[in-house]
């Protein structure tokens, strides 16, 4: 079985703070990580590999430094890593990104493509389904359990909703987007780190893809960022320092005042 895992290197957004003076994101010193949902996607692929035998390829699009995320994926047990990096890809929105990644995948063998549900920097959850559309593949998003029958070559997937779930069956090739609750990603292995010497991240550039210039990067992006801003909160609001008894009295009186009790 050939599995492709799409992963993105993201800043650890839980560490991002706003600079109170310039009112911009402080990105300096913020660690770059494999997007959590994508890391779970890799773990799902590695478990399928262990059970049924598979070659797992990790694929990322981003700046050269995303090699580090792919290196970690190789150390976890991925067999092959590809980085799509070129100035021509820069500034891409989800549609342009998905077209670029789909163009790269078109030339590769695959039975299953796995992506994380969404990235923690953009939270769009769009690139996975859009890749599936460009490749004309069935998609199952919000997957929280993935099974496989090697005889029938059928994937059985539990798809999570807000208010329930579905059990779905699909034959490959197909694309899944997985939730981080699907399983817990393993750590990098010592053997994996040693083997890294023999594994290289393959770089694909603009010239390696069969795709029109018009659909790439900023130029190929239908959506444009008009402006960005931070939310301003009033940091000088009045607070009352009260002992618990006074606090309880005041809250109860306030609720009464508002006809809530």
């Amino acid at each position: 079985m050939e599995i492709i895992v799409c992963l993105k290197q993201v800043p650890n957004t839980t560490e991002i703070k706003i600079d109170p003076v310039t009112n911009t994101l402080k990105r300096d010193g913020v660690e770059s990580i494999i997007n959590p949902d994508d890391k779970t996607g890799l773990e799902v692929a590695l478990q399928l590999k262990e059970q049924f035998g598979a070659r797992v390829t990790v694929l990322s699009m981003g700046p050269q430094q995303a090699e580090k995320a792919l290196g970690e994926a190789l150390a976890m047990g991925a067999d092959h890593a590809i980085l799509l990096t070129d100035r021509a890809f820069a500034g891409a929105d989800t549609l342009a990104t998905s077209k670029t990644i789909a163009a790269a995948i078109k030339g590769m063998p695959y039975d299953l493509i796995i992506a994380g549900r969404q990235a923690i920097d953009g939270d769009t959850a769009q690139v996975g389904p859009e890749i599936a559309e460009h490749l004309d593949l069935p998609q199952i998003s919000y997957a929280c359990e993935v099974g496989y029958n090697a005889d029938t070559k059928v994937f059985t997937v539990k798809r999570q909703f807000e208010d329930g779930y579905q059990i779905l069956e699909v034959e490959g090739p197909c694309l899944l987007t997985v939730l981080s609750t699907a399983c817990k990603p393993r750590y990098m292995r010592v053997k994996g780190l040693v083997d890294l010497d023999n594994k290289e991240v393959q770089i694909l550039r603009r010239s390696d893809l069969v795709i029109e210039d018009e659909v790439l990067g900023l130029k190929g992006s239908p959506t444009k960022v008009k402006q960005t801003f931070n939310k301003q909160y009033n940091t000088n609001k009045q607070k009352l320092v009260l002992d618990p008894a006074e606090a309880a009295k005041l809250i109860a009186a306030t609720l009464k005042d508002k006809h809530l009790i």
């Binding site: 957004t13 839980t14 920097d121 939270d123 959506t223 444009k224 008009k226 402006q227 801003f229």
Partner: peptide
């Protein structure tokens, strides 16, 4: 829409499509 976990907001337009 919010981005970066709500740390930043972006106004997006789709001018030509």
């Amino acid at each position: 829409r919010p981005a970066f976990g709500g740390n930043l907001f972006a106004t997006i337009v789709c001018p030509d499509h």
